[in-house]
């Protein structure tokens, strides 16, 4: 969401006030505006849950949900479940990144690899791969191997596609001149092609990350065991809505932190690049 501009960004200096105070006021206003609607939403949740329109099963109160998250945190359940969910999502994402970039590079360099993978990628990318989840269970069972395989299966396509497009976009002149100056093929790849393609590749990774999270949660819900998704399903079976809502909030926080972190990494890695702040397409 870095594509969203700061809302009150065009704050003009207010007449008669010293510039510093004016800026402080604008910043405060901006901060307030940012949280205002979220506070309204939370207040509405709390009010609705206590108004009697809904049963606590349909809508547990916000305070009860916060209390449950606190309980989960103090008993250590949160650490175990969130840790496992994070581990699966990140392990799957890491494999997507390494394997996806490798396949993408191979496709750009070898005609045969390109011939073989191109139709598979172009047909496989838009498929809802999650439908293969029962097949994965059939092959690999319900433990981490199966869960992480499912994540890789879903998340790898955008990475491969982005790598191929990124490398295709690198100017030929850049490569020729590097070769002319005596750089080896490997050196060209390492120092010229990959850096030049990196904005595209990182955009691919930024698509793969939220996808990995979605799939992690679904896989945990369907395959059971520890993890936030599994815990939510368990809670749903006990008609324990408070824990279900707590699970949503916990998963949302993890998603928020990971995606923000990824955007930060992008800005860090691409400081040199004019496209550093290009919007993440989701």
């Amino acid at each position: 969401m870095q594509s969203m501009p700061p809302n009150a960004s065009t704050g003009e200096p207010l007449n008669g006030l010293p510039e510093k105070a004016a800026r402080l006021a604008v910043n405060l206003m901006r901060a307030f505006a940012r949280v205002f609607s979220i506070l309204v939403l939370l207040a509405a949740w709390q009010w609705l849950s206590q108004s009697g329109t809904f049963t606590p099963y349909q809508l547990p109160s916000f305070t009860a949900v916060v209390g449950r998250i606190w309980d989960d945190a103090t008993t250590g359940d949160l650490a175990i479940n969130a840790g496992l969910t994070l581990y699966r999502a990140l392990a799957g994402f890491a494999i997507c990144a390494v394997l996806g970039i490798a396949i993408g590079m191979a496709m750009s360099r070898s005609v045969i690899a390109n011939w073989f993978f191109d139709p598979i990628i172009s047909v496989g990318f838009p498929m809802p791969k999650i439908a293969f989840l029962p097949v994965i269970i059939l092959w690999l069972g319900v433990y981490d191997t199966a869960k992480i395989t499912m994540i890789v299966f879903d998340g790898i396509f955008p990475v491969i596609a982005a790598t191929v497009i990124g490398i295709q976009g690198v100017e030929k002149e850049l490569i020729w001149s590097a070769r002319n100056m005596g750089a080896s093929k490997y050196e060209v790849l390492r120092h010229v092609v990959l850096p030049a393609a990196s904005p595209q590749i990182i955009t691919g990774l930024q698509v793969a990350l939220p996808l990995s999270l979605i799939v992690t949660v679904v896989a945990e819900m369907l395959m059971g065991g520890y993890g936030l998704g599994g815990a939510m399903m368990q809670a749903a079976h006990f008609a324990n809505s408070t824990s279900v809502f707590a699970g949503i909030v916990e998963i949302a926080v993890i998603g928020y932190v990971l995606i923000k972190a990824m955007a930060l990494v992008r800005r860090r890695l691409l400081v040199w690049h004019p496209e550093a702040n290009a919007p993440a397409t989701a």
């Binding site: 969401m1 969203m4 809302n7 009150a8 505006a33 940012r34 949280v35 205002f36 609607s37 979220i38 939403l41 939220p210 999270l213 979605i214 799939v215 992690t216 949660v217 679904v218 819900m221 936030l228 998704g229 939510m232 399903m233 809670a235 749903a236 279900v244 809502f245 699970g247 949503i248 998963i251 949302a252 998603g255 928020y256 990971l258 995606i259 923000k260 989701a282």
Partner: peptide, 23 residues
């Protein structure tokens, strides 16, 4: 509209939507 809705979109955007299935 932007001031009111942008923060909500920003918070909703990274939520893995599959977490909403049980609810």
């Amino acid at each position: 509209v932007n001031i009111l809705i942008a923060p909500i979109v920003e918070v909703l955007y990274p939520v893995p939507k599959s977490a909403l299935i049980p609810v």
